[in-house]
Simulated scan of single mutants.
Amino acid sequence: MPIDPAKATTAAPRTFPLAWDHKDILLYHLGIGAGIPATDPDELRYTLESRLHVLPGFATVAGGGRAVAGVLSVPGIEVDLAAVLHGGQTVTLHRPIPVRSCDATQTSRVAAVYDKGKAAVIVLRTDVADGDGPLWTGTSEIFVKGEGGFGGERGSTERLEPPATPPDFTVDRPTREDQALLYRLSGDWNPLHADPEFAKLAGFDRPILHGLCSYGIVLKAVVDTAFGGDVSRVRSYTTRFAGVVHPGETLRVRLWRDALGPGRIQVTATAVERDEAPVLMDTVVEHTCRLDPQHG
């Protein structure tokens, strides 16, 4: 059996060192579309080392994104890369991510394996800390086509419906035709995002954008629109990947500030060119509140 849930969830956690510096952060920010317009002071916070702050989505690629890639080598998991998709992602910040770290460590384990019938979902938990203590916790849901039906627990099926009220903000974020080629330099080398022939093997007519690239683009839109660019406001960010993005398409991001109560912004993202097909759903950004009528 390609996936042995009991073996995977009881395997010993894996711990390995992480290191990054400003170049890794700059590359990540460029990979999610930062730097347009290139001389905009608000964009220079993402693209100029002397003004640099770290968007929390960087947690998904720190150290070359080894967490998600590592799930494929966990004991009890043997799957075809062409059958793998990212199903969901959460990052919970314990404190702001530093611009440079040479002594961070990441500990990863398979927290659960769910049986969705025609697919399996592997839940990977990662905890990252440095010499000053915990930095962030990440939870990745990895969707593996054709690996369900083993009689395991199905997991949660709850969905977060978009509010019936108009959004507080609606912003469009275009992607470039080479967006996936740039983003993959941060560590996700899955050929699904670059090789047309491999994409066809995976069931797509052309390469698709990384789900975590869309994840970063949307978080940046929230931070810039609702928080005035203050990345330190973000406490956690969770989403379900509901559909694909083709490089060159435009993401339409909608934000509701108060639908879930203070300190929680509900978000959706759709692909404008395909009749607003869903891209990100069940998406919530938890944040610290402040008395600011403009930015919440």
Rank of each mutant, 00 (worst) to 15 (best):
V222G: 04
V121M: 03
D42S: 11
C213M: 02
S50H: 13
T60P: 05
H193E: 07
R240C: 04
D188V: 07
R290C: 07
T137P: 01
V222I: 12
G57R: 04
E49Q: 10
C289A: 13
R125F: 04
A119H: 05
A226T: 05
H295P: 03
D258C: 01
T9R: 11
P262D: 08
V79L: 04
T137N: 01
D172P: 05
D172N: 09
V123Y: 00
L93P: 00
A19Q: 13
P2Y: 10
R206G: 13
F227N: 02
I122Q: 00
R233I: 00
A271W: 09
V222M: 07
G261W: 02
Q179M: 12
R51Y: 14
I77Q: 00
P37Y: 09
Y46Q: 13
L192Y: 10
R235K: 15
A12S: 14
L27W: 11
E197R: 03
A38D: 12
S236Q: 01
D80P: 09
V121T: 11
E158D: 14
T15S: 15
P96N: 04
R14L: 10
V244C: 13
D258I: 12
P41K: 06
R14F: 07
P5M: 11
R109T: 07
A202K: 06
H246I: 15
P196Y: 10
D168K: 02
W136E: 00
L201H: 12
S101L: 11
P196R: 12
T268V: 04
V218L: 03
T60G: 05
